[in-house]
């Protein structure tokens, strides 16, 4: 699905990613954990093509294509979708406009016709119900005035509708109470298929109780310093990151 090789990236002249390697196969769920400043957010920014992040060397191959050569919107259409840590409020743009435009952009890429309005509305209502969201969400402006939990649920709702090949979830658990986290986790778990991959970036181990990953990586100082199965999360919870920091230095 995605192959990251020896990735180096800079932000405002400072090197943040220092030779990151990561490979995710179709159907796998990976989690990246790490202390503050390890480069977690930089990784998600580089993968989605945010401005201001300069890749100095290394490569990222997504489905056999050079991801770093693609524009932001091309990456999304190719099937890489980011769930934002801080979803953006966009006054005046209704959710329903965004969803329809996004879905049709993807369908166009696949050579399909635009979705018919009744089929679209049916799809939306079904997914809204699953995410325990009210139908009125559709006619509200994107994330405007949403609570933290509503914003994160909205991110997952978009995933359910746009069905990415690789869902990249950046601290999808931050700012959520336990009930909201369960709803979000249910949404993410429903995304799991034999073909779809998920990459979660998280600071907290608790999320992994609800979305159990196949592989856990520890990111420290711009590099993956340890990779293991879900038991690694418990170890981290008990011992913290310090023992790994020493190892990295």
């Amino acid at each position: 699905m995605i192959e990251i090789k020896d990735l180096h990236a800079r932000v405002e002249g400072t090197e943040i990613l220092k030779g990151l390697n990561l490979s995710i196969q179709p159907g796998e769920v990976h989690a990246i954990m790490g202390p503050n400043g390890a480069g977690k957010s930089t990784l998600s920014a580089v993968l989605t093509g945010r401005e201001g992040y300069e890749v100095t060397s290394g490569s990222v191959t997504f489905e056999g294509e050079d991801l770093l050569e693609m524009d932001v919107e091309e990456r999304a259409r190719a099937g890489l979708l980011l769930g934002f840590q801080y979803p953006v409020e966009i006054p005046g743009v209704k959710n329903v406009y965004l969803l329809k435009a996004a879905l049709n952009a993807k369908r166009k890429e696949q050579g399909l016709d635009e979705i018919e309005a009744p089929a679209f509305m049916k799809l939306i209502r079904e997914k809204l119900k699953f995410m325990k969201m009210d139908n009125s969400f559709m006619h509200r402006a994107v994330n405007e005035g949403f609570s933290g939990g509503e914003k994160k649920r909205n991110e997952i709702l978009q995933m359910l509708i746009l069905e990415p090949k690789l869902a990249l979830l950046d601290e999808i658990d931050s700012g959520l109470d336990i009930d909201a986290m369960k709803t979000v986790a249910d949404g993410v778990n429903s995304l799991r298929t034999a073909e779809r991959s998920i990459l979660m970036i998280t600071h907290y181990q608790r999320l992994l109780d609800y979305i159990v990953p196949d592989v856990i990586h520890v990111l420290v100082d711009g590099r993956i310093v340890k990779t293991g199965d879900k038991s690694l999360a418990f170890e981290l919870e008990k011992k913290g990151y310090d023992w790994l920091l020493e190892g990295a230095a």
Partner: peptide, 28 residues
């Protein structure tokens, strides 16, 4: 707003369409 523009494009909307929607939203 550049962050709003990025958000819309990260959902697959073209630059042109994202700008159009945000312009319209401003006028709304």
């Amino acid at each position: 707003d550049e962050t709003a523009l990025f958000y819309l494009k990260s959902r697959g909307l073209s630059d042109e369409l994202a700008r159009g929607l945000l312009t319209l939203a401003f006028a709304n």
